[in-house]
């Protein structure tokens, strides 16, 4: 931007065209962006690798099934539990959310916990989320799904270990 501005200022003795090409195009146009972009790309890929849902002993598995316009959540650790509109997870433990849909494409997004991942018909996508501390986190579906899309939201409640046990045993009476 500054360069554009300065081009209006007084003119120095004109250099020959070839050296100008070298400065502007090869230097500023090719080398400079390539260096910056390579760094950025490497950073992005490394972070992306770290976010992948790797296996681990401690991982909790839950299922999120989308339907216009409601999420239904089920839990591997408590097969009789089924909650609508609210997902319960333990705080401080990695959680794999298996995302599916029964109708159109939706997207599972809890901005404070992770990026978004789509629910695609016929597929199961797995998203790794983790809440550092107990609390309530707002989530939305982030893929346009027709007339009820505005209000298509849900909540994630992260519990401390005792509450989580209570939830798994079906003894937690708020939510669901």
């Amino acid at each position: 931007m500054l360069l554009v501005f300065f081009s209006f200022q007084g003119k120095r003795a004109a250099k020959d065209e070839a050296s100008q090409v070298r400065v502007w195009i090869v230097g500023l146009g090719l080398i400079f962006p390539m260096v910056v972009l390579a760094a950025l790309l490497a950073y992005g890929l490394v972070v992306g690798e770290r976010l992948l849902p790797r296996e681990g002993a401690n991982v909790v598995s839950v299922h999120a099934q989308a339907r216009r316009w409601e999420w239904t959540f089920t839990y591997d650790d408590a097969s009789e539990q089924e909650t609508k509109g609210t997902l319960h997870i333990p705080a401080g433990r990695p959680v794999n959310v298996a995302i599916t849909t029964t109708d159109v494409i939706h997207s599972f997004w809890v901005p404070r916990l992770a990026g978004k991942l789509d629910a695609i018909p016929g597929r199961t996508n797995i998203l790794r989320i983790e809440a550092d501390s107990p609390g309530t986190y707002e989530g939305t579906s982030a893929e346009f799904s027709g007339a009820g899309y505005d209000g298509f939201t849900f909540q994630v409640i992260a519990h401390d270990p005792t509450q989580w046990d209570a939830f798994l045993k079906g003894e937690l009476n708020e939510g669901s």
Binding site: L3, V4, F6, S7, F8, K11, A14, E17, Q20, V21, V23, W24, I25, L28, G29, L30, F32, P33, M34, L37, A38, L40, L41, G44, L45, G48
Partner: peptide, 27 residues
């Protein structure tokens, strides 16, 4: 992702060629 970052390079070449043109002339 790699291709998407790379595409910025030819765009950059054009932008700098234009800025260079401005330096070369009298805008």
């Amino acid at each position: 992702s790699a291709a998407s970052t790379l595409v910025a390079v030819p765009t950059g070449v054009q932008i700098f060629a234009w800025i260079g043109t401005m330096w070369k002339g009298r805008p």
